[in-house]
Design a protein around this nucleic acid. Structure first.
Length: 492
RNA sequence: GCGGGUGUAGCUCAGCGGUAGAGCGUCACGUUGCCAACGUGAAUGUCGUCGGUUCGAAUCCGAUCACCCGCUCCA
């Protein structure tokens, strides 16, 4: 079985078939930005819907949410993004290798430290960094570094049309914080009890230092995140639960088992607030290591809610400093933080606590890419190559195509009738042009599971030909059974 | 941000100082009773962008934008 091995082939297929285009294409493109075409938008929406169905609709303990992208600046002060979502990087003049300043080791030490805390970007900018004794981890040169460069990893924008009276806001770098700041609202309005989760799908923005590999890492991207709130002590069980749930989700939607794996984070790799974290990785046909992260599942403990309790206590400072985040330090936590505004009281046990959070955080765009790559297949049929996207029916952009075998003898009318009757229930496609074989193959490349062909026999006995995408096998079913047939076969 | 590579029709690419090309695809008409069929015809290009050299630039030079590969980075 021939498989795509180059990313270029995927990009080409995506453009040719209308899945994904470069953003602002006619102006030469915009780095790291992509648009979803007619088939792509359907595919991506199906990915979203499948996630929502599995994580929200089918669960009695998860609710949905849709937050604004713009949020109060203090959200990012409390979450730590405003201070720490910035890296200070230096360039080795000798070998041109770039290294994070906080990863640099002293000359006599070997190796760099992993995942040290980020530095406040404003403090860092004014801070003197003595790198003369530091050693380049790549070439070993000591003290050959450029002046540290700061990177703002959050996008900024202004709110307010009056230029003299605008407020600088951030485009959210993750959807998760919108959930945390609505924890209380949902709790008070939705009659739920811990354990429960809040789910959200939406755009996020990060000024990545480097983008990568088509839609795999882009600066504007879409996340599907769940924050599952649970009682401390039960967190490890819920972590295991969601780990399995999320892995199975990919498998159930057709990802080949060989191409999917878990990768547990080492303890020294964990963010300071995370108790455990695992990546669901897919074996993409690009990059140095092939295996790339689709989703991260983390045990974030009670860190976020506690941080926001601190943030709420800091609001006076925010007003006093006229919103200048760099002049504000988060107030210390109240000793009695488990009685804070974001704490939870469990009536049955009379326990009071700040819930722990299990966070499965998936990339919608990279999942979509994975489904696309995984579904792609080429096979030889009678000496000709057949390209086919073997999408799971739930993900297929078009569920069924309706053709008259030939464009005469009243066949188009019958076919159009069938199409009109189906399109209210399934995303369908009608085509009467050219040879039917070509129309079949075109649908193969779009991943359409079934083609329905009206022929002369239809006029005699009211049956149609059903042609199966994967096997190319044909069978006949009654015209009035088509809707039921599709409903059953597509599991819709 | 560094190094390497690539930008020519929707896609894959040829052309590499002298009239912009091919295959596939697309569209139209005809034919066609089931797997990219056949015939005839047609459309489609800021040769990524800007500037320079030249009588003349897709071609040479510079800058820039974008993509790919490798570093680096990826709470």
């Amino acid at each position: 079985m021939a498989k795509l091995t180059r990313l270029d082939d995927i990009v080409s297929l995506c453009k040719r078939r209308g899945f994904i285009y470069q953003s602002s294409d006619i102006y030469g493109g915009l780095a790291s930005c992509y648009d979803y075409g007619p088939l792509g938008v359907e595919l991506k929406r199906n990915v979203r819907n499948a996630w929502w169905k599995a994580v929200v609709q089918m669960r009695d303990d998860v609710l949905g949410l849709d937050c604004s992208i713009l949020m109060h600046p203090m959200v990012w002060k409390a979450s730590g993004h405003a201070d720490k979502f910035a890296d200070l990087v230096t360039l080795c003049k000798k070998c041109n290798t770039r290294t994070r300043v906080d990863h640099l080791a002293d000359g006599e030490q070997t190796g760099a430290q992993e995942h040290t805390e980020h530095i406040d970007i404003d403090i860092a900018a004014g801070q003197q960094h003595d790198l003369s004794g530091k050693k380049c981890p790549a070439c070993g040169a000591v003290g050959q570094f450029s002046k540290p460069m700061a990177f703002r990893l959050m996008f900024e924008t202004q709110m307010g049309a009056n230029v003299d009276d605008t407020m600088t806001l951030f485009l959210r770098p993750e959807t998760a914080q919108g959930i945390f700041v609505n924890f209380r609202n949902v709790l008070d309005s939705a009659r739920v009890k811990v354990p429960f989760g809040i789910a959200q799908i939406g755009k996020s923005f990060r000024n990545e230092v480097t983008t990568k590999a088509f839609i795999f890492r882009t600066r504007e991207f879409e996340q599907a995140e769940l924050e599952f709130f649970c009682k401390p002590g039960t967190d490890e069980d819920w972590y295991a639960h969601w780990k399995q749930q999320r892995f199975d989700w990919y498998l159930n939607l057709g990802i080949r088992k060989d191409n999917l794996r878990f990768r547990d984070h080492d303890p020294d790799e964990l963010a300071h607030y995370a108790k455990a974290c695992v990546d669901v990785e897919y074996k993409f046909p690009f990059g140095s290591g092939d295996w790339q992260e689709l989703e991260g599942i983390a045990n974030r403990t009670d860190y976020d809610l506690r941080q926001h309790q601190r943030g709420m206590r800091t609001m006076n400072d925010w007003f006093e400093q006229k919103g200048d985040l760099s002049k504000i330090a988060l107030k210390d936590e109240d000793d009695n933080y488990i009685k804070g505004p974001l704490a939870y009281f469990e009536e049955q046990t009379r326990d009071r606590y700040v819930p722990y959070v299990i966070e499965p955080s998936a990339g919608v765009d990279r999942s979509t890419l994975a489904f696309l790559v995984d579904a792609y297949d080429e096979e030889e049929v009678k000496g000709e190559m057949r390209n086919v996207l073997r999408f799971h029916p739930h993900l297929a952009p078009i569920k069924a195509a309706v053709f008259p075998l030939v464009k005469k003898d009243g066949l188009p009318e019958i076919a159009m009738n069938l199409y009109n009757g189906l399109k209210g229930h399934f995303n369908c496609f009608y085509d009467e042009k050219g040879a039917v074989g070509r129309r079949y193959r075109r649908q193969d490349e779009a991943g359409t599971p079934f083609c329905l062909t009206i022929d002369g026999q239809t006029k005699e006995d009211n049956t149609v030909t059903v042609r199966d995408r994967d096997s190319m096998a044909q069978s006949r079913i009654p015209l009035d059974q088509v809707k039921n047939f599709l409903r059953e076969k597509l599991d819709l």
